[in-house]
């Protein structure tokens, strides 16, 4: 910057010489004024240069600060990278274990897939069987279904699963009230209650048999079992009346013979 100021002074020095030895007073004054202006401009230029220098210095300082900060950050990053490298090594070990587990899982998945495939085959077979059932004529299905339901429920009764039998016979009577097995279902519902010791419910069920199917083949035994339930409840008068009614209405049934034996046991005829 200083060398630039000297170059300007050198530029104007011949003018000074010519004025000193050959110019007028006005010209000298004008020249002095010009010199003053030039000096002012030089000062202003110097000031501007100084300001720019300051700005450049400031910028340089800022850059230096940034570099320093960057360096610190770089150090931190370097440390972080080194730390990360250590972690990566540990992760690699963990990954190895994970890969092993994945392989195990993969093997198990294969096995599961195999089993699923097997189950799928079985399911397809079952579906084919269901399909073949569905392809039966509708009248056949309509005829078979109540039979199967009754058969399964009766088997529950026969095997002593009386809770299942009760709900099964109730459902059967609700769904197939006109089935040829309806009177049987009503009777076995009562007998299931009787075997559970639910005597009041048994009596109600046996009454249903007598009322709904008075000529059914289960009516005599419904009378007999109702009398047994009444005896259990110590309602002996009603039990005796029921047994007598059985003997009177169904005198040729085997239950009439049992009723007579029971009346004898109770001390009445």
């Amino acid at each position: 910057m200083m060398s630039k100021s000297f170059r300007l002074l050198a530029l104007f020095s011949p003018l000074w010489l010519s004025l000193a030895f050959g110019g007028t007073k006005e010209e000298i004054v004008r020249l002095q004024s010009d010199v003053l202006q030039l000096q002012n401009q030089i000062r202003m230029l110097q000031k501007t240069v100084d300001e720019k220098d300051g700005m450049i210095l400031s910028l340089l300082e800022q850059v230096n600060d940034q570099v320093a900060k960057g360096s610190l950050a770089f150090d931190d990053m370097l440390a972080a990278v080194n730390g990360a490298k250590a972690q990566t090594s540990s992760l690699e070990q963990s990954m190895g274990a994970v890969v092993d587990q994945l392989e195990l899982l993969s093997a198990k998945l294969d096995e599961t897939n195999s089993r699923v495939a097997s189950l799928h085959r079985k399911l397809e077979n079952n579906q084919m069987q269901v399909q073949s059932l569905r392809t039966l004529p509708e009248d056949v299905i309509a005829e078979v279904e109540p039979d199967r339901v009754y058969s399964a429920t009766y088997n529950d009764y026969l095997m002593g699963n009386y809770s299942l039998a009760v709900s099964g016979f109730q459902d059967f009577l609700a769904n197939y009230p006109d089935s040829e097995y309806a009177d049987n279902a009503a009777y076995y519902l009562g007998d299931s209650y009787l075997k559970q010791g639910r005597h009041e419910l048994a009596i109600q069920a046996f009454d249903q048999v007598m009322n709904l199917y008075p000529k059914g083949d289960k009516t005599p035994v419904a009378y007999y079992k109702k009398a047994l339930a009444l005896e259990e409840l110590q309602r002996l008068d009603q039990a005796i009346a029921t047994l007598r009614k059985l003997v009177k209405l169904h005198s040729k049934s085997p239950e009439a013979e049992l009723a007579k034996q029971q009346l004898e046991k109770l001390g009445v005829q």
Partner: peptide, 14 residues
């Protein structure tokens, strides 16, 4: 003149 073996379903008589 001869017997054969049969199965009866108890609930339905099939």
């Amino acid at each position: 003149w001869k017997h054969d073996v049969y199965l009866a379903e108890v609930a339905t008589g099939r």
